[in-house]
Simulated assay, not measured.
Amino acid sequence: MVYFRKIFFLSKVKIEEFKKKGELENTLTNNLTTISTIASNAPYIGLFGTVCGIMITFYKISESSNFDTSSVMLGLALALKATAFGILVAIFATIVYNGLARKVEVLMTKWEDLNEN
């Protein structure tokens, strides 16, 4: 996963090897946009799964000649799992993104301190 690769990379980067601030910043922030995009879009993907699950449940109800409450509830419960999963992914990705962004800030500050004239 991109999360763990980025965490490992930031722990091993040698800021002394970079001569230009922009080069260091580009290297440190590579893939952070991907993590941010996952964090912001995961709930929507989960919600889309929920809508699809509810639509399938309603379709099955319309095809059935008898109305069974337990099958409707089961279908709705399964549909809501998609939203729950999307929210969990978003929370995890947001926590990881914020931690990585802070690590980038710390490394940039250390680089600036090393290169003060």
Rank of each mutant, 00 (worst) to 15 (best):
I95T: 11
I61N: 06
K14M: 05
I95V: 13
T109A: 13
A77V: 08
F18D: 03
S62P: 00
K20D: 15
L28M: 06
E116M: 12
L10R: 06
L47F: 11
L24I: 12
K81D: 14
M1W: 06
F9G: 02
F18P: 03
G53F: 09
S70T: 08
W111Q: 12
E112Q: 14
T29N: 09
S62R: 05
F58M: 14
K110A: 14
V89E: 04
L114Q: 15
S65A: 03
S71H: 01
I35M: 02
T69F: 03
K60L: 15
L114I: 13
I15N: 06
T37M: 11
T69P: 00
D113G: 11
F67Q: 01
V96Y: 05
A42H: 01
F9M: 08
A39R: 05
S71P: 00
F67A: 12
W111N: 13
G86E: 04
L78F: 09
G22C: 06
I54S: 07
L47P: 04
F8N: 11
V2G: 00
W111R: 08
V2Q: 04
K14V: 10
C52M: 15
S70F: 03
R102K: 09
I54W: 10
A84Q: 07
N115F: 13
S62A: 15
A84V: 12
I45C: 03
R5F: 01
G22Y: 08
F8C: 05
A39Q: 05
I45E: 01
M55R: 09
I35V: 12
S71G: 00
E17T: 10
M108L: 15
L78R: 12
I87E: 00
T33S: 12
P43F: 00
E63T: 12
T69G: 03
T33Q: 07
S40G: 14
F18E: 05
E63V: 07
F85K: 01
S40K: 12
F18K: 06
L100P: 04
I61S: 06
F58Q: 08
L114Y: 08
S71L: 13
N26C: 09
E63S: 11
A42K: 02
M55Q: 11
M1L: 07
L10M: 10
E105Y: 12
I35Y: 03
L10W: 04
N115L: 12
G22M: 11
T29P: 04
N30G: 01
L100E: 06
L76V: 15
V104T: 08
E25S: 11
G86F: 04
L32T: 07
S71Y: 11
S62C: 00
A79C: 13
L114N: 10
K60F: 15
E25D: 13
L76C: 12
E116I: 13
N115S: 12
A79P: 14
L78M: 12
I87F: 07
I87Y: 00
K21F: 15
K81P: 00
F48C: 08
I61M: 14
Y44L: 14
A93F: 09
V89F: 09
R102I: 06
Y3M: 01
S62D: 05
L107K: 06
G99R: 04
V89N: 01
G46C: 07
L80T: 14
F18V: 09
I38S: 03
F92N: 02
V104S: 02
A101V: 07
N30Y: 07
I61T: 11
L100T: 02
M1A: 11
